[in-house]
């Protein structure tokens, strides 16, 4: 089981801030493919990966990164702090 978190418009599009996901995905990209195939709202949120960022256990990562040992995955748009 892995905790999947969504922020900003990704959260709004999917309609929830976090969920526990049972997955055998080996990489972030595989997890994205699994989620996107669930329902239209997920497909819409993950339609363009260039407009998304991912963090693994609260560290920025790439979509090709392995999920081995990861407990928390977060998806969000490019950050707009400062």
């Amino acid at each position: 089981m892995i905790d999947v978190l969504y922020f900003a418009w990704v959260r709004e599009r999917i309609g929830l801030p976090r969920e526990r996901v049972e997955t055998s995905a080996a990489t972030v990209a595989e997890l994205v493919a699994e989620l996107a195939s669930r329902e239209d709202r997920y497909a819409a949120a993950f339609a363009d990966l260039r407009s998304l960022r991912v963090a693994l256990d609260q560290q920025l990562a790439d979509f090709s990164a392995p999920l081995d040992g990861v407990r928390e995955v977060a998806f969000f748009p490019p950050m707009t702090g400062g």
């Binding site: 922020f7 920025l60 977060a74 950050m79 707009t80 702090g81």
Partner: peptide
């Protein structure tokens, strides 16, 4: 610090006005 906080710290700004709400694009 300012340059990095803008695009590497996980904050997202949303503007609320008379026509509704919009996320600020990076």
């Amino acid at each position: 610090l300012m340059d990095y906080l803008k695009s590497r710290a996980p904050f997202w700004k949303k503007e609320i006005g008379p026509d509704g709400a919009a996320w600020v694009a990076a």
